[in-house]
Simulated scan of single mutants.
Amino acid sequence: MDAERIAIARRCLDAAHAGGRSFPEIVGELIAAGFEAYSVDYRRNTQTYYLPDGDSLVLDMPQSAGGVASAFDASAVGSLVRWAQANGPDYSYKAFCERVKAAGCAGYVVSFLGRRVVYLGRTAETHVELFP
């Protein structure tokens, strides 16, 4: 992967964790750079960015408190997504990560092509959210 795309992915990852940019802004920049998807793995604490040609980039995420709960609570994950979408003054991506892991989310895949996010539990339960 070229240095410019690596820098864009790193900048977007850092901005999400620092609270500097919204999900739609980050998605827009990643799409403009040619990415088609990314995935978050809370068990490995990594984020992987995918290009259409099969190339990918794995970056370490900042640590967040707590582990992934054994039971997946799709309703709680959905509520946390609504909280994130509202982007209120009490929202932070760090808190989202901690809370969604407590709800049993082991990670998620953001598909720009499919315009959806698939949240995954440890036993492969899913919760799907569409985005415009």
Score class of each variant (00 low, 15 high):
residue 70 S to R: 14
residue 86 A to P: 04
residue 72 F to C: 07
residue 95 A to C: 00
residue 119 Y to N: 01
residue 35 F to L: 15
residue 17 H to F: 14
residue 70 S to Y: 07
residue 108 Y to K: 04
residue 43 R to E: 15
residue 105 C to I: 00
residue 128 V to C: 02
residue 8 I to H: 02
residue 43 R to T: 13
residue 45 N to T: 10
residue 71 A to D: 12
residue 91 Y to S: 05
residue 63 Q to P: 07
residue 93 Y to P: 02
residue 50 Y to S: 07
residue 95 A to P: 01
residue 78 G to W: 06
residue 46 T to C: 08
residue 55 D to P: 00
residue 128 V to A: 01
residue 117 V to K: 11
residue 101 K to S: 11
residue 26 I to S: 03
residue 21 R to M: 05
residue 15 A to F: 07
residue 122 R to V: 15
residue 58 V to L: 05
residue 44 R to W: 07
residue 35 F to M: 15
residue 106 A to S: 15
residue 97 C to T: 12
residue 52 P to N: 02
residue 106 A to L: 08
residue 7 A to Y: 03
residue 62 P to T: 08
residue 101 K to A: 12
residue 88 G to A: 10
residue 4 E to D: 07
residue 107 G to C: 10
residue 32 A to N: 03
residue 32 A to W: 02
residue 109 V to C: 00
residue 55 D to Q: 10
residue 33 A to Q: 01
residue 85 Q to E: 14
residue 113 L to N: 15
residue 90 D to E: 15
residue 54 G to W: 09
residue 48 T to K: 09
residue 126 T to D: 02
residue 22 S to F: 10
residue 76 A to Q: 14
residue 52 P to W: 02
residue 116 R to D: 13
residue 114 G to Y: 08
residue 28 G to D: 06
residue 114 G to V: 05
residue 18 A to Q: 14
residue 15 A to V: 10
residue 111 S to I: 07
residue 45 N to I: 08
residue 116 R to K: 15
residue 101 K to Y: 09
residue 7 A to M: 08
residue 111 S to T: 11
residue 74 A to P: 03
residue 31 I to Y: 03
residue 41 D to G: 09
residue 98 E to A: 09
residue 124 A to V: 01
residue 132 P to E: 09
